[in-house]
Simulated scan of single mutants.
Amino acid sequence: MNTPLYRIAFIGCGRRAHEHAAGVKADGRCEVVALSDLSTESSERLNAEFGFTGNIYTDHKEMLAKEKPDVVLICLWTPLHLPVFRDCAEAGVKAVLCEKPMSATWGECQEMGRIAEANGCQLTFSLQRRFAKGNQTVRRLIKEGKIGQVVRMDLYSPPNLLDCGIHTFDQAISYMDETPAKWVLGAVDTTETYNWFNVPSECGASGRIVFANGVQANLVSGEMDTWDPAAGDATKTWAGVRVHGTEGFIEVMWDGQIIRGVNYKDPSWTPEMELSSMTDQMEGYVRHAIDCLGTGEEPEVSHAKALRASEIIFAVYESVRRNARVELPLADVTDSPFITMLENGQFAK
């Protein structure tokens, strides 16, 4: 029985495309037939580095029409995700693996989900840290009750929430078996504003999140005053989650590095450390997405799961706009409240 081959195409061939390409290269079911980028040099470089023989285009619509790929990897800046995904879905692409974050506004995030469901196109986002061995271990330990019942979380992220916080929120949600948030109270720091991939952002944020299962979480995003990399202090979590249970706690970095774990009844217990590289994670991401294309099951990083994490981000921003806590699901919001407030000059200099 022959292994099925999926026709693969890349839209966007920059640095992140190379990380996605490692996952594609490792999966024997994938055949790269085309690459699209405004820079022909970038496409040629991706072809050469991974031994692909894809046809090169500068117009992704022309590529979709001529090559008819089964699977497309979108590795573009954030504002391009929605329009390019729409083009893929309308062209009959079976699955799209898109770079995170979803989009710059909550309405656009929801629209991506609507298009995926309306067209039967499997849409996933590169929240590849779910495939880190350490994160898989933590999920297992929590299910086994190693720290008892989860009651609280401390969430840490570099700036900014849209690009970085989504990893932290997704990590936390995955530890609670996909439980969504119930309400959010947030604040943002605009001492400085950044522009990441053509989307303006805050330099820091904080807040309180209560999940539907009653777990309460404290959020810290931005510069960590308690962490000094120059001093070699590796015991502080600057990107990840500390999970507090009734019988212990586990502190985990984004990529699954377990900083420490404590079981109150068994002081000798030490959680096993399992590290995985970005390449390992991307291989797991691509392999799982291709698997799900065949089985029809919901992917580990489906658009529905990305929406849960994204909703928290925009709820933090909406809380700032309302000066009040925000109940979820997030209703009557289609913009990015942060961008709207910034453009309206509502943040003090």
Rank of each mutant, 00 (worst) to 15 (best):
A212F: 00
P4D: 01
W238D: 11
T279A: 12
E44F: 00
A231H: 01
A306L: 01
S268N: 13
K305Y: 06
T191K: 07
L330S: 02
A95W: 12
Y156E: 11
I209E: 08
R16E: 12
L307C: 05
G113E: 04
N160D: 15
N135G: 03
V96G: 05
E178S: 09
W227E: 05
A17H: 05
E343M: 06
V138R: 07
F125A: 04
G261C: 06
R29H: 02
D37M: 03
T137K: 12
Q110G: 04
I290H: 10
K66L: 14
C30N: 12
M278H: 13
F52P: 13
N213M: 01
F125Y: 15
G28H: 03
A181H: 09
G345P: 07
K94L: 14
T193E: 10
L307Y: 02
P329R: 00
C98V: 07
P79Q: 11
V210E: 15
L5V: 09
E31P: 00
N263T: 10
L35G: 04
S39P: 04
V316I: 15
D280S: 08
M63S: 11
V220Y: 08
I8V: 14
R139N: 12
L161W: 07
N119I: 00
E247D: 15
L73K: 04
M112D: 01
A348M: 04
C13M: 01
Y175E: 09
G204L: 02
R139T: 09
R139C: 13
I8W: 09
T246Y: 02
A116K: 09
T295V: 09
G222N: 10
A9K: 00
E31D: 12
Q216K: 05
T295R: 10
G92S: 06
A181V: 09
P329I: 00
A234C: 06
E283A: 05
K182N: 12
T40A: 06
C203H: 00
L162F: 04
T226H: 08
V243D: 02
S42T: 07
S310T: 12
Q149H: 07
G186A: 08
T3S: 05
V32K: 01
K94S: 14
F314N: 10
E49H: 09
D163A: 13
R208N: 05
A212H: 04
N198H: 13
L80I: 02
G248N: 02
E272Y: 05
D163H: 03
I166W: 06
T191H: 02
S43P: 11
E298W: 07
K61N: 14
V184M: 11
T237F: 00
